[in-house]
Amino acid sequence: MEFSANSPILFIIFGVIILAVLGQSVFFLIRALRRSKQLGMDQKKIKKTMISSAIFTIAPAVSILIGLVALSYSLGLPLPWLRLSVIGSLSYETIAANNVLSAIGEAIGSLKFSELTAQQFVTIFFVMTISIMVGIWLVCIVCKKVQGGILKMENKDKKWTDTFVNAMFIGMISAFWGFVFCDFRVIFTGQTYGLVPVLVMIASALTMALCGLAVKKFKKVSWLADYALPISMIVGMIVAVPLTMWLGAPPVVA
């Protein structure tokens, strides 16, 4: 069969795989919902969790879609569609593809998908698939043990276990707060674009704090609590537009 990176057959095959992945989410969702009823959990809360999770997801999902456009220039639509619907991320898939393409003097964004040969396509596909596999099956081996360890720790000292898990959350948040400052040093060379992410983060944090205060003060707006994070995120992203115009965008790395 003649190869095209945008061939309908690829859309069909990858579509079926994505359906299987979707099937797993639906399966786990149904079982968790059933369990929530058995545990007598407040179903209103569960419904709110579902709605706020769905709304929160919209902006990051659109951002994944934008990443997909970047990859599709060199790889066509179906492969980035599959790869960004399963484990991996835009940066990982780009690195994996570039590690193959660089050997032939090309890169994502320089080679057009219509010039990609079937052999290059399957080679990139194998590298993308194999290099990130470890998480999916390692989870099968260690998930029960690690969770069991946490439960054991909880039986021994509940307060420390809660602190332990909170410390992990804080650790992750601290790393990303640090990441926000990664271009901060350009200020010392007289450039200002490194301030944009910092100010965006502050704008989002302030919006969140205001939402929290409003919910505490006025009972009428208690619904705000469920949407505070997506609202803060959107405010931060909107603020980013004039801030970028004012302070500049980071130089594009080729």
Binding site: S63, I66, F179, M208, A228, M233
Partner: peptide, 13 residues
Amino acid sequence: PAFAQLIPALFGG
């Protein structure tokens, strides 16, 4: 520019 700042906007809140 809005989506370039998704991570700071997410982790701020």
